[in-house]
């Protein structure tokens, strides 16, 4: 196990997991979040390769829309 800071809170997680795995374990959908590791945004295409290290400081921001619109477009 390793220890990270997640949004300012200490958290123990399994060692050697990627950011993508972390999102999975947190039950977060990748298209709905942005991730900063050690004060730098990590690009989305790197989440599957970026391995979380002991002592990492991670911020996860949620892409909030307010309400939800399920938009169905039909052509008349």
């Amino acid at each position: 196990m390793i220890e990270i800071q997640l949004n300012g809170q200490k958290k123990e997680i399994r060692a050697a997991i990627t950011l993508a795995h972390l999102l999975d374990e947190l039950k977060l959908k990748p298209e709905r979040v942005a991730i900063e590791v050690n004060r730098e945004i990590v690009k989305r295409d790197q989440w599957s390769s970026c391995v979380v290290q002991d002592g990492d400081s991670i911020e996860i921001v949620h892409f909030v829309g307010g309400g939800s619109i399920s938009r169905c477009q039909t052509n008349s």
Partner: peptide, 25 residues
């Protein structure tokens, strides 16, 4: 500076988002 799609390139899939009437505000 980053635009909204720099951070969130794609629309969240329909039905995947929380709503005001489930989460409140």
């Amino acid at each position: 500076s980053p635009c909204i799609r720099c951070l969130f390139p794609d629309l969240p899939p329909r039905g995947s988002v929380e709503t005001c009437d489930t989460a409140g505000i």
